[in-house]
Design a protein around this nucleic acid. Sequence first.
DNA 1: CACTCGTTTCACAAAGTTGTGAAGACAGTG
DNA 2: CACTGTCTTCACAACTTTGTGAAACGAGTG
Lengths: 171, 171
Amino acid sequence: MAAADGHDPVHLFVERMALTFAEVGFPRMAARVLFTVMTADDPLTAAEIGERLGVSAAAVSGAVRYLTQFGMLVREPVPRSRRDRYRMPEDPWYEGTITKTAIYKTFIDAAEGGVVALNGPDTPAGERVAEMRDFFIFVQEEIDSLGERWRVRRAQTGHLRPGESAAAPSG
Amino acid sequence: MAAADGHDPVHLFVERMALTFAEVGFPRMAARVLFTVMTADDPLTAAEIGERLGVSAAAVSGAVRYLTQFGMLVREPVPRSRRDRYRMPEDPWYEGTITKTAIYKTFIDAAEGGVVALNGPDTPAGERVAEMRDFFIFVQEEIDSLGERWRVRRAQTGHLRPGESAAAPSG
DNA sequence: CACTCGTTTCACAAAGTTGTGAAGACAGTG
DNA sequence: CACTGTCTTCACAACTTTGTGAAACGAGTG
């Protein structure tokens, strides 16, 4: 396989999806690497990733470090070689990423600080901020239960892989 | 009221909250303006917003244009004056903003394009992308129903304003 | 209908972000 | 234990974003 030219539909998808992720605050290069690996049937080495994207080894290095931190990418050494291979984890990273992220707590804490700063929810401003805080709390609760509902749905629509049980999703 | 120095706890909240919003892709200045208005008991003029934040009129102008587009801020002329005042809308903007945003559709469409590019969900790569697509569809459905559940919750916890009915939330 | 005050637009500058090239570090091998 | 190939780190350059100052615009007023 040669390096990607912009005409390969798979590569086009990689770039489009990465762009979309970048729009919501996800690091650009990390997204490109993520979807490059996602769209490869077999694990890729760092060199292969760089070749497909036409970027430097340094860029790949930074991106995989970022991605492995959150478990969105798994690194595994290649036997009898110095290279490492990268692959997607079996359990869906997006579920964990969305449900485990601490961003909601950050919102809630900041909003709570606002309520305090405004001397409680008894002024118009205080009430607005308090309601925003409560909404964020509500969303966090909803998100917390979302992972569980997704597993049920997933079992129903047949995304389970051989040997995987809907009741015992992961370690 | 003097211009904000960094020691006013309310202003501190404004900046913290704005920073948090900025981290998830929301324009910085728009967030600062939004929370400045949110924490004011009474509507503010553009000049007052600029003064509190210590930014130029141009910056305020751009921010309010952005915010009013999504209905997160309401502009109303001041009688017998050339100025406009800005205030928060009564109905919670965050509910509408979160549930009506088109970002999920963008994710879904991009992922669907990936499934097609990979010749369907029958390869390891195709299956991964198809499952991600289905997850995004699931999330969108969940989000769509979230607004409704929030209104119920809101009615229970007493955030209703005088004259407002839980059964008929908005026009 | 000219004047005034507030708002908007536009070109530019400051700041921040992101990826590169090159040097350095590290692990496996002969 | 030096060599080789891979990955990582760092300083820098290109690019993007964001807010400013100044000029233009426009609505209300005498």
